[in-house]
């Protein structure tokens, strides 16, 4: 095993000799390869609806296996005027989606200048089709995407993953967050009706709490994250206010509680 992931799982040159690339003819680069596993990855994205909008957050870490490879990666992206997309999973696939697909989509839409910009549900529908289409080509984009925004006069939140599976819920989290954050979020947002009773401050506080819990127990997370808050005007599709807070640090985070925990870790007794 070496540190080139593209060599993993292939016959070793020192045992079998180097691969005869002439079988590809002039295209010595080799056959077309599809993603079989994620390489550089981002961990959970968490999001919660509240009365007037949605809060969504993702930390800034990109891991290479267990190596904390980059600590300044933005995994949230504003798309158009009504939408924030958050991605976990493969970072290069995320960048392809953000920098190529969505960028081109929005440029083409803006160019029309006819007042028919794409809102959250349109972006979500588009992304779902792209994800499902790629999985059907057996060439998936290795991500779980959360789409948060404002549409039809109310908050919008939905998920699409590498299989093209789609679903919507008042509280969503991808990756580790599906285990650790969702139960916390569902305490205040058990169903769609309860969203009306959640204030913006409450939603932000709950998401902050989730980020903290995830940092404590998700080994592929970090203590710096980006949070976006979409706030719309009820009953209208007017452009919502989108506040993006970057480089947010965890509040009142401390490992003190771990001192008393026994049974695993570095303790000898």
């Amino acid at each position: 095993m070496n540190h080139f992931p593209e060599a993993w799982g292939r016959p070793r040159d020192d045992v079998y000799g180097s691969y005869d690339r002439s079988v590809f003819g002039h295209d010595a680069a080799g056959p077309t390869q599809h993603t079989q596993q994620p390489i550089v990855t981002g961990t959970s994205v968490v999001a919660l609806k509240f009365k007037d909008g949605v809060v969504i957050a993702a930390d800034n870490l990109a891991s290479y296996g267990s190596l904390a490879r980059f600590n300044d990666v933005e995994r949230l992206r504003q798309v158009g005027t009504h939408t924030i997309v958050g991605a976990s999973g493969d970072v290069s696939d995320m960048q392809f989606l953000y920098e190529k697909q969505l960028e081109n989509l929005i440029i083409a839409e803006d160019y029309q200048e006819d007042g028919h910009g794409l809102r959250a549900k349109h972006i979500y529908s588009y992304l779902s089709r792209v994800m499902y289409h790629r999985r059907s080509k057996m060439d998936p984009l290795w991500n779980v995407l959360l789409v948060a925004g404002w549409d039809d006069g109310k908050p919008f939140l939905a998920s699409a993953d590498l299989l093209g599976t789609t679903f919507s819920s008042p509280a969503l989290a991808s990756g580790f967050g599906a285990h650790l954050a969702v139960p916390l979020l569902r305490r205040i947002a058990p169903d769609e009706a309860s969203v009306a009773n959640i204030t913006r401050e409450q939603a932000i506080k709950t998401i902050e709490e989730c980020m903290k819990v995830l940092f404590y127990r998700d080994a592929r997370s970090m203590n710096k994250y980006t949070m976006a808050i979409v706030t719309g005007k009820e009953g209208t599709n007017d452009e919502p206010d989108i506040e993006i807070q970057k480089d947010v640090s965890l509040k009142q985070q401390s490992w003190k509680f771990a001192e008393k925990i026994r049974g695993y870790g570095a303790q000898t007794v």
């Binding site: 029309q112 006819d114 028919h116 794409l118 549900k121 349109h122 979500y124 529908s125 588009y126 089709r129």
Partner: peptide, 12 residues
Amino acid sequence: RLLYNRPIPVSR
């Protein structure tokens, strides 16, 4: 409708 989940704008 399939791609964007919206009725096509008339001008488009």
